[in-house]
Design a protein around this nucleic acid. Structure first.
Length: 429
RNA sequence: GUGAGAGUAGCUCAGUUGGUUAGAGCACCAGGUUGUGGUCCUGGGGGCCGCGGGUUCGAGUCCCGUCUCUCACCCCA
């Protein structure tokens, strides 16, 4: 028989890798809950249309899709947001607002794998729906930073770069950018950090023939602070958005995470649907792709047949984060290990040992034992290899008076006691 | 979809100008030991040298193709 290889871009989670995955997902869950988000989940596949409706037909080539036996076109979810929107739309009139939900979905995308990007991954999703105040945006950003901080990532390791699509859109509109040149400007700003000054200049001149537009973009490229931006924004609407983004930073400051955050006009996000504050989280070394990203999307529900209800949220994948935590030595995983390793010196003690093992397990201790009656020394070796805290030895003394010996494998200290005392925890082990 | 690099044991890697039966360390299993572990010693299992073709008396080694992986581009929801 031929060996079947694993599918491209997937991972096998052997116990050590599973421990890493649990470390990451458990942390996400804990931080979500303490920030007031409730967990939800949906199916791993949806109607293909749900995804094309949100992202266009072009997305189909990036999806794992299938036709079921009833002829329905389905696809494995490449992200959680469409499912979230669908679920919220279905119950929008009965859900108390704001809706603060989180999810830890397993997602698949048919992309070519590379560093930090696989075909199957987990993604932490946080969303606040039905709240227009930028307080919600600030809370999403805080929650992201709350997690980063909780695993030991400092402002020296990561940075949250924050901007606003509303501001950028307002400025470009005021500078007479057409919808087409606006899209080009978004793309150019997004790519800017990867380009050298000369290259950037050349590409701008090539893609935006109008001199006035080129200059407007160069001016934007030079903006370094929100204050500078205020000077450029003359119309009231855009000025309000600048003021709102100022509020976001103010809130983040009061929440004590300002040192993780900075304004960066070049944060655009590829998504068409972002309409307000947007942010992206990067490693300070700038060696990896974005650790996470998010923003406000006022038209998401409406885009999928729902009412005009606004939302803001973010996503963070486990792949890039895992690389970053690994590099920083912040993966704190402990292998599961038994409390007791029960040893017998002869098969005649098997029945008694099974009783003791099961009694200990019923008391919620992790207990394991050898299927073979090897030499005592050998079994202690197994107990050490299993990283057990105690070895429980059933031997001569057990046959004589029913007592067992309990050995602390870290200290080597050994005491003899009755099984009842062991079960009741009546001794100082 | 485009481009570059790499494929030898579970892992990390040796392998001479092409030359007998392809090696090491770690890991795994067993023994050293009929009641005391972590160290140590001995032994063992494990390889279509990614796959297919070609050159050659002879290919892990050279050539071509292919697959897979890695990295970058595109894209990034």
């Amino acid at each position: 028989m031929a060996k079947v290889p694993p599918v491209k871009g997937t991972r096998d989670f052997y116990p050590p890798e599973m421990a890493v995955r649990n470390f990451i997902l458990d942390g996400w869950k804990r931080i979500s809950l303490r920030n007031g988000f409730a967990e939800y989940d949906g199916p791993i596949f949806e109607h293909l249309q749900l995804f094309t409706q949100k992202s266009g037909e072009g997305i189909v080539s990036e999806l794992f899709s299938l036709t079921d036996r009833g002829g329905r076109d389905l696809a494995i979810r490449p992200e959680m947001t469409p499912t979230l929107a669908r679920m919220v739309n279905q119950q929008i009139n009965s859900l108390p607002r704001p809706i603060k939900w989180f999810s830890l979905p397993r997602c698949c995308r048919a992309e070519r794998p590379q560093r930090g990007r696989l075909r199957e991954f987990f993604q932490w999703n946080i969303d606040i729906i039905g709240e227009d105040s930028v307080l919600a945006d600030a809370e999403c950003i805080f929650t992201a930073v709350d997690y980063l901080q909780s695993v030991g990532l400092t402002p020296n390791d990561v940075v949250v770069k924050i901007s606003s699509r509303a501001i950028l859109a307002g400025i470009l509109k005021a500078q007479d950018f057409s919808p087409k040149s606006t899209a080009i400007a978004y793309s150019l700003l997004d790519k800017r950090p990867k380009l050298k000054d000369d290259t950037f200049k050349a590409i701008v001149q090539e893609q935006l023939p109008q001199k006035s537009l080129q200059e407007a973009l160069f001016r934007l490229d030079n903006v370094e602070s929100l204050q500078q931006l205020s000077a450029i924004c003359k119309d009231e609407d855009t000025a309000n958005h600048v003021s709102e983004l100022g509020d976001v930073f103010k809130y983040l400051n009061f929440m004590g995470v300002a040192d993780y955050c900075e304004f960066d006009i070049k944060i655009v996000r590829g998504l068409a649907y972002y309409t307000g504050p947007v942010f992206e989280i990067f490693d300070k070394g700038d060696q990896l792709r974005a650790v996470g990203a998010g923003g406000r999307y006022d038209n998401l529900l409406a885009g999928l047949g729902g009412p005009q209800v606004s939302g803001t949220g973010f996503g963070m994948g486990d792949v890039v984060l895992g690389i970053l935590l690994e590099e920083k030595g912040l993966l704190k995983t402990s292998q599961s290990s038994p409390d007791f390793y029960v040893i017998i010196t002869g098969e005649e003690l098997r029945d008694q040992s099974l009783q003791l093992v099961s009694e200990l397990r019923r008391r919620d201790f992790a207990v394991t034992f050898s299927y073979k009656t090897a030499a005592l020394g050998k079994q202690l070796k197994f107990a050490s290899a299993a990283n057990a805290r105690y070895a429980v030895i059933l031997g001569e003394e057990t046959l004589r008076d029913g007592s067992v010996s309990v050995k602390n494998l870290a200290t080597g200290r050994q005491t003899t006691l009755s099984p009842d005392d062991l079960l009741k925890g009546n001794s100082s082990l």
